[in-house]
Nucleic acid binder design. Structure first.
Lengths: 196, 196
DNA sequence: ATCGCATTGATAGTTACTACCAGATTGGTA
DNA sequence: TACCAATCTGGTAGTAACTATCAATGCGAT
């Protein structure tokens, strides 16, 4: 509720031009209550109810598959559940938040930090042996490239006002980056992940 | 001068526990002067004198080479000039800034935003045709993975107190992510960049 | 010596965020 | 119904980052 008013006001007047007090007034609560639920002003846009289960999804995927296939499949699957057909309201809300995240420097920075933490979680979920530093480098690069593909797809999706299906966009971005045989539904390659 | 005092104080007392006013006092200037030179407190750590020439280096590299080879080579070359032998003072300063950037959330977020802007600059410097969206996806993933390798190498370097040579670390991270034939000095692969 | 001109400084104000404490609301129990 | 505990909410006061505006200071050139 508070978050909905916040995103609306930020979109109408701009993020920096809107004070937390104004958000509180619009939501009919005190500024204290806002700070109680959202520790920082940025959280009013960045926090989302649907928690991140992607890391678990990756850990549950078959370890024999290549890294980008495991990560990419989890990303596509999560996007599909997130932007389902009967969730148009949530979809518009997600679009509004996304637009703010992309265009507002403070929000973009915090978002990228979250994404980086997510990347670390993915690398841990992959559960490769920590003893081999090469494997860690490997996983970092694969996770980073997958998240870059996700981000590129999200930006494209926002520019498109959500008309294109998000899972398809992610799959397209992954295919462009890694090759068609790497995305879910395609054939399983014999090799592992990005190697020229 | 101001920046040196800032990094020292942030390291000694912690970033959040140090006020800009204290930095100003240590440097013997007024807080206004600090804000004049460094618009935000974060800039006291993030701003560096040696500007980013890497994008130009990439643009100057042979376009026939694979993407990660072009980007990776530029990163290694820049790191080599940045941490040269007779720059021990700068090296210690860089290490101190790096430690702060890694451990302080606000600094890390701003740093990642800078890195993302850098990624966009790399993609533009690659100068692939903008008409093909697949090529854009492609370049984003390649640049992102290279920067992830760079970041992983930087973290390792900082943990190692700068004892290992930074260019070698970057080359190792790139080799682990993309294969030995992709880093500068290795053979030129016939293909392009990451494709399983 | 004086005139630009750039750098610095002081003052006052806005806003995000915190610490602390007081009242209200809710839900379970006798 | 009456009561108690816990959680939610609100007010007050304070800190610190950052901004706008204007005054003072140094400094080289004519």
């Amino acid at each position: 509720m508070i978050q909905a008013h916040a995103v609306r006001l930020f979109t109408e007047r701009g993020y920096d031009a809107t004070t937390v007090t104004e958000v509180a007034e619009a939501a009919g609560v005190s500024p204290m209550t806002v700070y109680r639920h959202f520790p920082t002003k940025e959280d009013l846009v960045l926090v989302d109810q649907h928690g991140q289960l992607v890391a678990e999804r990756i850990a549950a995927s078959p370890a024999a598959h290549p890294l980008v296939r495991r990560i990419g499949g989890a990303l596509i699957g999560s996007a599909a559940t997130l932007t389902g057909d009967d969730l148009t309201t949530d979809k518009q809300f997600l679009l509004a938040r996304l637009r703010l995240m992309i265009s507002t420097p403070a929000l973009r920075a915090r978002h990228l930090d979250n994404q980086y933490a997510f990347q670390q979680a993915i690398v841990e979920a992959l559960g490769d042996d920590d003893t081999d530093p090469d494997a860690a480098f490997h996983a970092q690069a694969a996770a980073s490239a997958c998240l870059a593909a996700l981000h590129t797809a999200l930006v494209r999706w926002a520019e498109d006002e959500g008309r294109t299906e998000l899972p398809a966009l992610i799959a397209k971005a992954l295919a462009a980056a890694f090759g068609d045989d790497m995305v879910e539904g395609g054939p399983v390659a014999a090799g592992d992940q990005p190697r020229g």
